[in-house]
Each structure stands twice: as C-alpha cells, then as structure tokens.
C-alpha cells in the first residue's frame, strides 16, 4: 500500500503531514516513510532512527571512445535531451543533461559509447521502532531527480512487502519528479492551503493525478486563512476533502522546533487519525 503525499504548490505541508502520519500509524503497525523529494529532503529533520543501511546511488552515462568512433552522428540524432553532440571530429557529452536512457549507446554502430556509472546521490535507511525511514539525497549540481526517485522506490519495493503502508513524501510541482513519485501510488493525498495560489496549483495537481488515473483526496492545511475557494472547488468537482488542519501559531512553533505535531495539538491528532482511517479503509478495498 503506497500513499503519496503531493501538493502542486510547495510549502503547503507535505512533510508535516508525511512525518506525523507515518509516526502516528507506526504506533500500531509497521510503516515505511520515504522521502522522495530528493532535491531537498527534509523529513529526516523530524524522524530520528538508527542507521540500518546506506549506499551511494549512480546513474549511467555514455563515455566516448574516440578510437573506434566513425563520427556518424547517430548518437546526437537519437538523443532527446541534447546531451550528446558531434562537434567537428569530436563527440561532446553533457552528463547533467543525460537521462541515462542508453539510446546513443545501444544504437551506436561501432559500439563507441559504453555506459559508465556516475555518482548522483545517496540513499539512507533508518529504523526506529515500527517505523522505517528511507531517504535519498541528490548530489549538488545534479539536476536529474527522476533516476534517483526511481531507484529509491525500487529499493523500497525490494525491502518491504507490498501490504506494508508506505508514505511517500513527494516533491512539489507537477513535473517529471512528481510523476515518478506518484505513478506507483495506490492513493494520492494532495495537501493544499486555502489561498488563491493554493487553489491554482491544486487544480494543476488534480489534473495531473487524474491523468495518471490515481485515486486521490485533498487535505486542507492552514485552514482559517485565505478564503473558501478551495472548499467550493472540491465540492464542485466531487473531490473528497479528507481533513482540515487549522492555522495556529502553536503549530508553526512546534514545527520550527523540529517536533511532531499530533502529540501536542489535538486538532492535528484528529486530522491524522482521520487520514489513517481513510488509508486503512482504502487498503481494505474501500475508497
């Protein structure tokens, strides 16, 4: 059971919800929290644990072997990302642009582009009671989040049985990294805030998860600020509003101190409990 916490707009509370939900559910069952926001993972600020495993992660990029190359230029024709170019009598490779798709390498008539490992980040797996925490961190200057997200999910699939609840703290936005993080999810929880900006990006996120054919619900964070446009939108679209988390100074203070909220703020405990029940109902076959 994979539950992706996504948002559209950044800073709406994905990590807040992910960490609280994971810790709350881990009080009564095994839970895996996975931080897939590999460009800026921060769930780890709220969940401590003992290091169980860590490993460097690599992406595959082509290396040019000039002795055998016939300079036919086929590689630059098949690359969708301009990551490899023929300039005169040499082939230039731009590792940051490369998506590691192997096309240039596999289709090279003289086999002059073997693929080679390039470090792109690090995966860490921590344990604390019934909570397993997995996070990956992209190296500085790397710009491809998707391969690392993909490999992190593969690690999770290989390490845990399918029925264990996995909370996927996803990147913001609606581009490739979010697609990669949510495409395998059984349920997507979209966190938003009751502001025009929150609504604007929620609509983009809803459009995205609908195209992916995902079941999804909305959680309204910082409830009490802004206006009621998000609620009207959800009602008009028939979208289930699973919980409202109030806007409170105490929540911000607790969060800023690096503490989990549900133990100290009754309204958050209530919202977390409601979302956990929804996940259980979904796992049992309802929705």
């Amino acid at each position: 059971m994979k539950v992706a916490i996504a948002s559209g707009k950044g800073g709406t509370g994905k990590t807040t919800l992910s960490t609280n939900l994971a810790r709350f559910m881990a009080e009564s069952e095994p839970v895996v929290l996975v931080d897939l926001d590999v460009e800026e993972p921060n769930s780890g600020l709220f969940v401590a644990g003992e290091l169980f495993h860590d490993e460097p992660k690599y992406k595959m990029i082509p290396v040019w072997e000039s002795e055998t190359c016939s300079l036919c230029g086929n590689c630059q024709e098949v690359c969708n990302f301009n990551a490899i170019l023929k300039m005169g009598d040499r082939i230039m490779i731009f590792p940051e642009l490369c998506h590691g798709c192997y096309a240039c390498s596999e289709l090279c008539p003289t086999a002059s582009l073997p693929m080679q490992q390039k470090p792109m980040g690090e995966l860490k797996h921590l344990r604390s009671g019934a909570l397993d925490f997995v996070e990956s961190r992209l190296m500085i200057s790397e710009e491809q989040a998707v391969p690392l997200i993909h490999q992190t999910l593969r690690y999770v699939d290989e390490s845990f049985s399918p029925e264990v609840v996995k909370i996927l703290d996803s990147p913001p936005g609606t581009s490739c990294p979010v697609i990669e993080a949510t495409r395998g999810a059984d349920l997507v929880i979209l966190v938003t805030e009751p502001t025009p900006f929150g609504l604007h990006d929620l609509k983009l996120a809803v459009d995205t998860v609908r195209r992916l054919g995902k079941e999804f619900v909305v959680v309204l964070n910082r409830y009490g600020i802004g206006d009621d446009q998000v609620e009207q939108y959800c009602a008009a679209e028939g979208i289930h509003l699973a919980a409202r988390i109030p806007n409170q100074r105490r929540i911000a203070e607790t969060y800023a101190a690096g503490k989990l909220l549900y133990r100290e703020i009754p309204e958050v405990a209530e919202a977390t409990d409601a979302i956990a029940s929804l996940i259980h109902a979904h796992a049992a076959g309802g929705s």
Partner: peptide, 15 residues
Amino acid sequence: NEAHGAGPKTAQKLS
C-alpha cells in the same frame, strides 16, 4: 520545443 539542452544545441548550430 527543446525542453533540455537548448544552450549546447544552439551553440552547435552557431558553429
């Protein structure tokens, strides 16, 4: 229409 690598592509054309 190029989502990625516009810089090197344009530089190649320029050459």
